[in-house]
Design a protein around this nucleic acid. Sequence first.
RNA 1: GCCGGAGUGGCGGAACGGCAGACGCGCGGGUUUCAAAAACCCGUCUGGGUAACCAGGUGAGGGUUCGAUUCCCUCCUCCGGCACCA
Length: 941
Amino acid sequence: MAGYDFTAIERKWQDYWAEHRTFEVPNPGQAGFADKPKFYVLDMFPYPSGAGLHVGHPEGYTATDILARYMRMQGRNVLHPMGYDAFGLPAEQYAVEHGVHPRVTTERNIANIERQIKMFGFSYDWSRRVATTEPGYYQWTQWIFLQLFHSWYDPEADAARPIGELEHKLQRGQLMVDLGGNLVPPPATQRIEAIAGQPVGIYSWHQLTPEQRRGVLDNQRLAYQAEVPVNWCPALGTVLANEEVTNEGRSERGNHPVYRRPLRQWMLRITAYAERLEQDLAQVDWPEPVKMMQRNWIGRSTGAEVDFPLQSVADDEWFKGRSDDGFAPQPEDEVIRVYTTRPDTLFGATYMVLAPEHPLVERITTDGQRPAVEAYVQAAVHKSELERTAESKTKTGVFTGAYAVNPVTRQPIPVWVADYVMMGYGTGAIMAVPAHDSRDLEFARAFNLPVVQVVAPPAGEQWEGFIGDGTAVNSGPYDGLATPQFKQRITDDLERQGLGRGAVNYKLRDWLFSRQRYWGEPFPIIHCDTCGTVAVPEDQLPLVLPEMEDFTPSTSDDPDALPSPPLAKATDWVRTTCPACGEPARRELNTMPQWAGSCWYYLRYLDPHNRQRFVDPAVERYWMDGMGVDLYVGGAEHAVLHLLYARFWHKVLFDLGHVHTPEPFGKLFNQGMIRSFAYRDSRGVYVGYDQIDFREDGAYHRLTGEKLIESVEKMSKSLKNVVNPDEVIAQYGADTFRLYEMFMGPLEASKPWNTRDVPGVHRFLHRVWRMLMGSEDAAALLGESADDAVERALHRTIRKVGADVEAMRFNTAISAMMEFVNAVYKAGALSRDQAERFVQVLAPFAPHLAEELWRHLGHDASLAHEPWPRYDEAMTREATIELPVQINGKIRTRLSVAPDASQEEILAAALAEPRVAEQTAGKTIVKKIVIPGRLVNIVVK
RNA sequence: GCCGGAGUGGCGGAACGGCAGACGCGCGGGUUUCAAAAACCCGUCUGGGUAACCAGGUGAGGGUUCGAUUCCCUCCUCCGGCACCA
């Protein structure tokens, strides 16, 4: 008998699957398509880094592979694809340092990582492989960008609509434009103009010049350009996303200084989708922590906007005018509009604060205060937001010299400038209620501003700094109201008086979408002196990234240097003609961020070779039926950004009719991080595993003999605790690797890799092999007789493994299979028929071994599409079961009964037990509890 | 600071409110062997007892319940996320 030669077996079956295209699945309309229910199971595709796979990648991939193989056996059409997220800064950095083109390194890395992935025997449909860097792929990334560019968010429809519809509305006068270029409803009456006595700054479409019209439309697109404060890293020559900047205000890559600079950049209007991104989380089956993180990121809060008039204008007349006119839709020069979540504390607002960037600062600052204010604003603007928060321990600020009037107390209150107020949130101005806001209190204490109590806390709590709900005091007619009621009442009253209204705010900001890099998708945009910003026509896509010898960004130590994207050097490529007017024009020089390609790859897998469309509608309808991807597995590090960006794009595509589900990923699962033991000596120097003697009582340094300190850490080179999957597979095989990672613990838990545990599951596979194939020392247990206990154990195993796989409890599924094999060894035999069913159950976990055994059992074809074995509920029970009998909750004896015994029978049997009689003698039985199939509890007194 | 998640043998971890520690590692003993590896069998929470058995035990303290690792409250520790968001 041959031994279990996993190396040969695994190679053989991987070749077989590739040759027979076992896992390729046709689309509707293609040859061989069977009309069956679908299952779309997706992995987060990897970034092909030079380091290759670490043991964390295959953890999620194994889990999805088990599901994919199980679902195939359940008769589903399974879509299980893999690809590469291959644009990005690391490849470009490496290329610059080594003088190799990023395409070369990317292709090399993909080849290596694919070799590694294939070693595990995952059942991917490799014919659907994509890489975000292929022109045939990024053609459609560019196409989706153009959909964003050609759309605006129509608040009436609560959806994205073609920009042409907006133009139409403007032409017909259904919308107008104010001085700031914002859309406004047409004035209800002529009265407003009459009161003002001069133009009120609202224009109709026909009053605008062609350039102005273009500006208005450009300003409403979902992809638009705007001057925004960005993280500018001159040493890297690019702007960076917040997540690419460290807490110290330096670049994650290279540790270079990063500066906050207002620069004109491409933005995506994700904020228009804030409400729907928040609301629709209720429709998806995602881990609650991930939903929480997204809700947090979106940061929805409810409150009110309130106008505080400047003292110079706020006479009785002004207040009267407001109650006649109502709350104007846009802020005016004479009021400071604030957003607050606590309108009930309005009576306690004793001063106001403007963000340093607030446009009113310059207007209202008095001459006496101007030098101080200007110095403060200059300093604040030059700090990064990180610096501003890092120095948050002490509050700073300057008085503007101006006063505003509290709209309810009608008292003048001072207006300050301070950097603890952010221009990017709310209105960039706050009413400060030091009594009931800890930041305001800190500020008030620092600058000796008055603190007025307006909320009475529950008994026993200090009012100063109390921020919870309580009862109103010092609030005139509202005294005695509970906080929630007060909020509602005063919001209604302010609205009636034209001084405020209920409002919803979000922390979410628009998405900075451009990078000054070479290795990314070029924007399909052309700049024309006469026509402005013009889209590249769709039939000219893909706009291919130009081949360049020198793709290094221009870097600098000078914080004031301006970004100069590498594409600027491709002068022939940049020079083009305007698609609209045919005059000479220039291409956009920025490229898209790495997130772009990963925002929609799950859709391209559906139809990866389609040259006419990004995905065929019928194909999309089939595979995305229900709520899109049926199972999406990946690490929690993408809980916010990737998953939020992808949901956003999907919703835009949904609004425009290109996909038919409102959400892309119906079910999401986060695998836990695999960490590993790290060892360091008394000086804190980390020691690699090859330098360690593992003894019974701990780890010792092989050379010095010193006992080492053990800890569980993230795998990292510097901690010398990285486990390389290639080595584990070489030693134990892919089936063992898969089984080990699934057996370590719950998939969602973070858990330490322990190489010493790997032989345990390897031993199990050996036992399975010997059970059916025998060994030199022992014959196989395979026979013709079917043992009843084994048969019952098998039914239980089939049920348990099926249920566990569906619930993604792979660790206990494997335990159940181990128990079955132990039972077979105990019984000493199993029939061919039992062996076949067991091999089918094992197949999703250890597919190579299962295929080999399946063949040995006399089958010619792969078992990948065999049906999952059935079980009989009656056969999952033992012939007799043991029930514990408790007296007062303590087990005193056990009872053997038939599994279907009635409550009365069980109770009678229990009371007949000598141990029970002994324990209850001389006592009264007050209660008898019988849970059939569980236990008996007799309560005595 | 705020929001999540988790604390169970020497280790990884099991337990619809119902036999705590399944399964695996490690360890101890045995069978086999010239020997070793491998394999197979037995044991392995703690204390007491030859044993049957008794007592204690799931981070700490309280509560609900016939019964709590599981549900509720307070606290401690660790991990993850956000962080002047008005």
